[in-house]
Design a binder for these strands. Structure first.
Lengths: 81, 81
DNA sequence: GTGATTAGTGAGCAT
DNA sequence: ATGCTCACTAATCAC
């Protein structure tokens, strides 16, 4: 009688244990997926900033070229800054 | 005799199954850790580029201010580009 | 038939 | 005593 109860409880414990294992695996996978999404977003930011760098760089170079064409002397600290 | 062999083999299969489960979990965790490392590296790139943007932006502004101080007229397409 | 996986069982650990 | 986890077993699935 007593052993029987124990056996039935064990059955339940085993089931809990298996469910728990699956949940933990799912959780891991979710976290991994989320990290991947974050990484994609960051990559986009990254590309956006790369473009912005090139944009400002071009603007700077264009101004400098304009000065050179006009024979305007630019102070060295602005030239090479 | 035959059932005995089957049972022994099953014992082995069950062991393989358990090992496989553990390996897959480890693999998942490794991937997650690696993604985290990649993310940190990307974050650094990100910060570096943010600085570079600010750097070129400053250089551009400095040139523009120099021009204004010198009363140099800058073509609109360079001014607002 | 062989290998893999699942649920159930008892053993053993931890509380 | 209770809950959890492990290894083992039989049942079952997939090939």
């Amino acid at each position: 009688m007593k052993q029987r109860r124990r056996t039935l409880k064990n059955r339940g414990y085993a089931a809990s244990c298996r469910i728990k294992r699956i949940e933990q695996k799912d959780e891991l996978e979710s976290e991994k997926t989320q990290e991947y999404r974050d990484m994609e977003a960051m990559q986009e930011d990254n590309n956006r900033m790369r473009e912005e760098i090139e944009s400002w760089h071009s603007k700077y170079q264009a101004l400098k070229k304009f000065a050179q064409d006009k024979k305007i002397i630019i102070p060295p600290d602005l030239e090479t800054m």
